[in-house]
Design a protein around this nucleic acid. Structure first.
Lengths: 135, 135
DNA sequence: TTACTTGCAAACTATTTGCCACCTG
DNA sequence: CAGGTGGCAAATAGTTTGCAAGTAA
């Protein structure tokens, strides 16, 4: 389970190029939820010859291959994180954009309970829950 | 609380124009979560002389004035709904984009519990919760 | 070698804005 | 009448893509 993103990239039969290696490493070492611009910045520090277009393409490829997970927290840009990390959810501070990770077994049960109550078939569907606080 | 969006628009001292009246009406009558393009389409059916730019400006003004609430469900465009509706949360089907509304007291408690556990000050902060299902 | 990748710039999509005519209060 | 408002098109921000050159296997 401690396979690196790069390991999984190879395992998937994806061609391993210098830029993919670098981008994988950057994401491996990122403890936060970087957007493409940030990933590009960090990657550029390791290898000046990586274009933003390549970051976009790589990150999309990795996501489609299940190596990364894409997150959209409502600020208009996508963020990415290693798909192999332990499951967790996010709380976003709307004002500051701060991303707070948390784990709570309750939320899983909650989703299942709600889906069941609504007669929604969870199998084969990926659901995402958006909750706001009552004013 | 059965005030219309238009009523609240006037109450806020906002200038009431034909296009604002129409856009307010469209949102009033929309039971779903329309994006700007959809709002523009529906408004155009009532008054052919409303530009998309005006919808963007109006919807932003209404949101800043607290008449509407903006939602971003991860598909890249903002959606709006009447801010006076009873509190509820959303479950999004990632594949189909379907928006499922639900109400569950548990989720409020959950947010407060998590924030407290993390030592996060809820006062003065608007938090939004993003939950995915464990694979 | 050969198909897959990359860089660059052009193209796209969603949204914002400058400018000037127009309308509400 | 005066200042807020709307239309139009140009400008932005984030992301995608066509094409020719480069590279992994």
């Amino acid at each position: 389970m401690t396979t690196t993103i790069l390991d999984r990239c190879e395992a998937r039969g994806l061609r391993v190029t210098g830029q993919r290696r670098t981008i994988a490493q950057v994401l491996e070492e990122s403890g936060d939820h970087p957007d493409v611009e940030t990933i590009h910045l960090r990657a550029s520090a390791l290898d000046a010859n990586i274009s933003v277009a390549t970051v976009y393409r790589t990150v999309k490829l990795f996501e489609e291959s299940g190596l990364l997970e894409r997150r959209e927290f409502g600020d208009g840009r996508a963020r990415y994180e290693d798909a192999e990390r332990d499951h967790h959810d996010h709380l976003i501070d709307v004002q500051t954009g701060e991303v707070i990770e948390f784990v709570d077994p309750e939320i899983e049960a909650l989703q299942e309970r709600i889906a069941a109550r609504l007669g929604y078939d969870l199998k084969g569907h990926r659901l995402e829950l958006f909750g706001t606080r009552r004013k």
